[in-house]
Computed example of a mutant assay.
Amino acid sequence: MLQRRKKEFQYHANKYNVHMYDFRLILYVWVLSIIGILVINSAADGFAVKQLMGFIGGSVVMIFFSLIDYNYIAKFEWFLYSINIGMLIAVKLLGINVNGATRWFSLGPFGTFQPSELSKVIMLIIFAHLISEQKEKINSLTTIIKIGILYVIPMLLVALEPDLSTTLVFAFLFCTMMFVGGLSYKIIGIILGISVPLAGLLIWYIQQPGQILLHGYQLQRILTFLNPSDYLLTTYHQQYNSIMAIGSGMLTGKGLNNNTITSVKGGNFISEPQTDFIFAVVGEELGFIGSCVVLGLLLLIILECLHIAKDARDMKGRLIASGTAGILIFQTFVNVSVATGMLPNTGLPLPFVSYGLSSLLSNYICIGLVLNVGLQRNRR
């Protein structure tokens, strides 16, 4: 068995069209990651070196996955699914609790590991395979229910950590892959027709005394978003300070590593600015121009993923590349929207920019898979 697998790997590796290797995508990712390291170094002390090590390690992992056939990896879908479920159960039972959430394994001097970040990659691979295998029956109610149940199980485990923000990433990824997989517009219309009124009903319900759907801190964040003036000195102050910081950067920013008392870092106006509110640091220190550069690089990465998806040789590759684009779109939109006060405060990192080794590693694995899809574009 092992010999056969080894021969399959060598066969696929030898058939790659090296001329199709997307060095442009790698360049965009590396430039954005380097900007992220510089901004993290400016935002808080003691994190830039770890992010640099994550950048180096992530680059190695990216190149490694870019040279392994995604079809070969997808053959282990049930093994990967079992690992995924086991990992998410284990973190709930054995993980460390931080502020009421159990999302991380402690790695001692190496920091922490967040399984839900790796879980996104595993889900991307598994369900790209399952949806592509069922593409002829994707509009069958039986198929939708079967795929949906398999997807909901790990998503619920993430929700129970609790980690609502990553759960929403899972949900968006699922919607993206089902749409790209060929789900009919009629079914999409029916889903929207049901979900939009339900969303309105949900917003009403969570504001009622005794609601049981959300944890206290989650409810507080939503109420803060709906009535920010009532929470200006409490739960809204971080977002308010973030908006002020971005505005204060004006066109060109105050410069990296400035430590004035009015800055995010110098004045300690935002806790953990190197993670969820990294865009506030970008806006303040690099200004409007720097913010546009960061968002422009993210846009180029997303467009490159979509371009590779368009030319993918099979549905599985198309789903992997478009699913990666979907993850980056959602996380970028949410992170920037939180920093600018357009969405409730929630903890999602800005891809390749925010500090977080688990997130950085998972993003680099996804890019590696997209590169592999690109390598096989001309194979038929």
Rank of each mutant, 00 (worst) to 15 (best):
106 S>Y: 02
71 N>M: 01
155 M>W: 01
368 G>F: 04
72 Y>D: 01
268 N>T: 06
68 I>V: 15
103 R>S: 15
160 L>I: 08
140 S>I: 03
234 T>E: 12
122 I>Q: 00
99 N>D: 12
258 N>K: 11
101 A>V: 11
196 V>M: 12
249 G>H: 00
107 L>E: 05
90 A>R: 07
217 Y>A: 03
355 Y>Q: 06
356 G>Y: 08
205 Y>G: 00
123 M>S: 11
36 G>Q: 00
377 R>F: 00
259 N>S: 12
363 N>M: 13
25 L>K: 05
365 I>P: 04
208 Q>P: 04
241 N>Q: 12
346 T>A: 15
293 V>S: 08
121 V>Q: 08
337 S>Y: 11
87 M>S: 11
209 P>S: 07
145 I>S: 10
351 P>I: 09
59 S>N: 09
100 G>W: 05
97 N>K: 13
96 I>E: 13
45 D>W: 03
149 I>C: 09
231 Y>D: 00
241 N>D: 06
114 Q>C: 01
361 L>T: 15
50 K>S: 11
364 Y>S: 15
90 A>N: 05
148 G>E: 10
319 L>N: 12
82 S>L: 15
362 S>R: 03
88 L>A: 11
26 I>M: 12
135 K>A: 13
182 G>C: 07
78 W>C: 04
64 F>A: 15
264 V>F: 01
202 L>Q: 00
336 V>R: 09
156 L>D: 03
215 H>K: 14
324 T>A: 12
40 I>D: 09
86 G>R: 06
18 V>A: 13
370 V>C: 09
145 I>H: 01
375 L>C: 07
279 F>D: 09
354 S>I: 08
56 I>L: 15
143 T>V: 10
169 V>W: 10
181 G>E: 02
14 N>I: 03
45 D>T: 11
69 D>Q: 02
314 D>K: 05
215 H>W: 06
125 I>A: 01
351 P>A: 09
2 L>D: 06
202 L>M: 14
92 K>N: 12
234 T>I: 03
220 Q>K: 10
257 N>T: 03
37 I>H: 06
354 S>Y: 15
